[in-house]
C-alpha cells in the first residue's frame, strides 16, 4: 500500500476506513511501543498499554486539530495511557527497589560498551520500581518538569524529586556494577 500522509490517515480514520486504521497502526505501532515499553515492567504490560492507547487514539481522533504533528499527539496519548496503568498499581510509589544487578550480564568493558544499546538500557529501566521508572521517564526522556510530573501522577513536587534522585542512584549503581564487572 502506498505510504499515506498523516492528514490522509486522519481523514480515513475519521471516515471509519479499516484500511486507514490499519495503516495508521502500522506506521506508529513501533515508535509508540518503544515509548510504552519504558513505562512498563515487561512486554505484556507494554502491549496492554499500547492497545489501550491506540483505542483512545481511534476514539478521540476527532479531537486532533492538525496543529501539531500527529506522532506527537499520539505519543502524548500513549504516555497518558501508560501513566493511567501505573496509577492503578498498588505499589506504584513503593520505596523498596528490587535491586538485582546484572552480575553476569556484562563482564568486560567491551561488553559494556557494546551492550549499551536501547534494548539493554530498557532492561535496566524495567528493573526500576514503577514510581522511579515513571518519574525518570517523564523527567529525563519526555522532558516534563517536576511540577508537571507531580500533577500527572498526583504526587507532590518533593516526591517527584525524591523519586528521580532514587531512580538515578539506582541506575548508576546498576551501570557501575555492570561496568566494573
Amino acid at each position: 500500500m502506498q505510504q499515506l500522509t498523516d492528514q490522509e490517515l486522519v481523514q480515513g480514520v475519521l471516515n471509519g476506513s479499516p484500511t486507514h486504521q490499519r495503516a495508521l497502526y502500522q506506521k506508529y505501532s513501533v515508535p509508540m511501543f518503544r515509548v510504552v515499553l519504558r513505562f512498563a515492567r515487561d512486554r505484556s504490560e507494554a502491549e496492554d498499554m499500547l492497545q489501550d492507547g491506540f483505542i483512545r487514539v481511534f476514539r478521540d481522533m476527532a479531537q486532533f486539530r492538525g496543529e501539531g504533528a500527529l506522532g506527537g499527539w499520539i505519543r502524548r496519548i500513549m504516555v497518558n495511557t501508560a501513566l493511567s496503568h501505573l496509577r492503578k498499581q498498588r505499589d506504584f510509589l513503593r520505596d523498596t527497589p528490587d535491586y538485582s544487578p546484572f552480575e553476569n550480564s556484562l563482564r568486560t568493558e567491551e561488553d559494556f560498551a557494546a551492550n549499551l544499546d536501547a534494548e539493554t538500557l530498557l532492561g535496566y529501566l524495567q528493573r526500576l520500581p514503577p514510581g522511579y521508572r515513571a518519574v525518570f521517564n517523564l523527567y529525563v526522556i519526555e522532558g516534563f518538569s517536576h511540577e508537571e510530573i507531580a500533577q500527572q501522577l498526583g504526587i507532590s513536587v518533593g516526591t517527584s524529586k525524591s523519586q528521580l534522585f532514587k531512580a538515578r542512584e539506582y541506575l548508576k549503581r546498576i551501570v557501575d556494577k555492570s561496568f566494573i564487572t
Binding site: V30, F33, L37, E47, A118, F136
Partner: peptide
C-alpha cells in the same frame, strides 16, 4: 538514556524487541 531511546531508527530492530505482537492489533 535520552539518546538511546530518542535516536532510534524508524525501522524495527533486528531482534524484534520493539515490535508488538499481532494480538495487539
Amino acid at each position: 538514556f535520552r539518546h538511546a531511546f530518542e535516536d532510534l531508527p524508524d525501522t524495527p530492530s533486528a531482534s524484534g524487541w520493539d515490535v508488538p505482537s499481532p494480538k495487539v492489533w
